[in-house]
Design a protein around this nucleic acid. Structure first.
Lengths: 125, 125
DNA sequence: GATTGACTTGGAGTTAACTCCATATGTTAA
DNA sequence: TTAACATATGGAGTTAACTCCAAGTCAATC
């Protein structure tokens, strides 16, 4: 697959795809004789993973480390697992924060709706 | 309350508290004759709101707008509500992304655990 | 009244994560 | 084979959200 195709498939800019490769967030991509990138299935798998993790706000630094470990083979399995567990913990904490914020938003929106009906907002919080 | 007390109470740096006020994320804080900040209950309410919203990643720009609207009185109730509804929508989308990422993390961690036991990782995904 | 520590402002610096650009080279259609 | 377009690289620029700093003022203590 060309970079244009991958960019469309995963809705990631070509600049970002090259950037991810350059910093080691995904392993080096195959090249044609001319030097153009030729993404394999495996490359696509890495890109999908990167997109998924980034969409949840997992920091690039952690993903670079994971990618580096993965390229060192089975000896790093435990380390990689620990890394994922750590990110999972942080993710769960963030989700809790968001849940609290969601509750607050719902509460406030509810109050604003009631205020719209009654025309008064003196009892808002 | 002094800025030091507020900083400790909400675990937000003094620099950030001043920054929030400067950019209008919270309304101007009361001052003593000497010019020092003297946070009221209401100020604290705004800070708590800011902290909650920011912890969920709601952008500063939206909060500045909300704060500006709130200071214009009841005429902006509907606009404020719409703003909150919009942010709630974005928040729910982010939470869905995170849920998907969490599932992926759980799946991968599970595979790594099995690999640790069996010593093989050939069937990872 | 002098020292010490908290607080003030305006502005510069930092960090993460892209995003853009200039210049050069590969690729394809007429 | 030449125009037109896609892609390559290295490096600079951008954005959001802080964070730090210098130089000065306020407040409490000795």
């Amino acid at each position: 697959m060309t970079i244009t195709e991958v960019s469309k498939k995963y809705d990631i800019s070509q600049d970002t795809l090259r950037y991810y490769e350059r910093i080691g967030l995904i392993p080096a991509v195959n090249r044609t004789k001319g030097g153009m990138r030729d993404y394999t299935e495996e490359s696509c798998g890495w890109i999908e993973l990167a997109k998924c993790m980034r969409s949840a706000g997992i920091p690039i630094e952690a993903l670079i480390e994971y990618c580096a470990l993965a390229q060192q083979g089975d000896a790093t399995i435990t380390t990689r697992k620990e890394l994922l567990v750590e990110e999972r913990t942080k993710l769960l904490e963030k989700m809790e924060d968001m849940k609290k914020t969601l509750d607050k938003l719902n509460y406030k929106i509810d109050i604003y709706e009631k205020a719209e009906v009654s025309g008064v907002l003196s009892w808002k919080k």
